[in-house]
Write a protein that binds this DNA or RNA. Structure first.
Lengths: 168, 168
DNA sequence: GCCTATTCGTTTCATCTGAAACGATTTCAC
DNA sequence: GTGAAATCGTTTCAGATGAAACGAATAGGC
């Protein structure tokens, strides 16, 4: 496989006529970005699974409930990238593990008031601690200037997606 | 039932979230990175789906076969992020669409020689063109210096994952 | 040659997934 | 008030998923 060559990559990304499949797939920025994000997510999840024994969905939901308690199923869905079906199933699992309680809201009996149990709070602290450890270790390779620059670049690209979604 | 202490619990949660939870979930770099990559991938896939009518798996496999033809199922799996089961099912769909042929390799009758049909080659050009259009439009918001910088940052973080996987 | 181990691709099977349908409840219009 | 519409969370159902089992073919040791 070819050595990394940022300048050539940039040129390739901008020059349609010279593109072949290989370059598009393996050297284009979107591909690198996607692969990095996926790898990072998987590595972090494996780490958290090992330390607190929860799946991605589980610790995400637990984190939200622990932080904003009490929360309804819908509110958890809105604050995460999970849909309500998935949240419902995840909270069900958390309840069965004795980490979360889900009683009907007396104010509106359609809703469920999700709260952490004592055991849930202990898990919550474990999740928060693991996340903090991993995330800070992750970005520690970057000095503060690089980190600021990265955040700005990501934000720019995020806005770019808005534009492209409108255009195409 | 466990004895709850709402006031103390609320204070604890709020305090913890201010220190860690909230920042970790919504403001941390890994989260931004993941969200951007996911959004970008979905937007691009929707665009390609609209232009050439293929799913992500389908155009990825088509792209690899078109670029390295002939390729076996295993080779496609190795060059992509898909496992062999997934590749097998995807090629099956591509064959049924008349875009790919899969004859047994006469040299080694366990293997399948995957090649593009005439229609497959037309699709291939459509995929390449769509990818080039999207990818170059995507990174066009960044000047060449920013792009180079971004690529370097991504590479640094990718290596960082290697380190963290070894450590934890 | 012969027998075992390995490789390749497909199929099986138990699980996961989310759109749509659903019952229960609340809100709104009248 | 009464009935229609909307909201909330769960369940259903048809399709997707991948680890493991599988048959077919080849490679390697003797």
């Amino acid at each position: 496989m070819n050595a990394l060559n940022p300048q050539r990559d940039a040129a390739l990304a901008a020059d349609t006529s010279r593109l072949l499949g290989l370059e598009v797939l393996e050297h284009a920025v979107p591909y690198k970005l996607y692969k990095l994000a996926l790898r990072g997510s998987r590595a972090k999840s494996a780490y958290i699974k090992k330390r607190v024994g929860l799946s991605i969905d589980e610790w995400k939901v637990l984190l939200l409930i622990g932080t904003f308690s009490p929360l309804s199923t819908k509110e958890v869905a809105e604050r995460s990238t999970l849909d309500k079906v998935r949240v419902s199933r995840t909270t069900d699992r958390l309840v069965r593990q004795g980490l979360v309680t889900g009683h009907r809201d007396p104010e509106d009996r359609r809703k469920v008031e999700l709260k952490l149990t004592r055991a849930g709070k202990a898990k919550y602290r474990g999740v928060v601690d693991s996340l903090a450890t991993w995330d800070s270790a992750f970005v520690q390779v970057l000095d503060s200037k690089s980190l600021t620059s990265l955040i700005k670049l990501l934000q720019t690209l995020d806005q770019r997606i808005d534009e492209l979604e409108r255009r195409y």
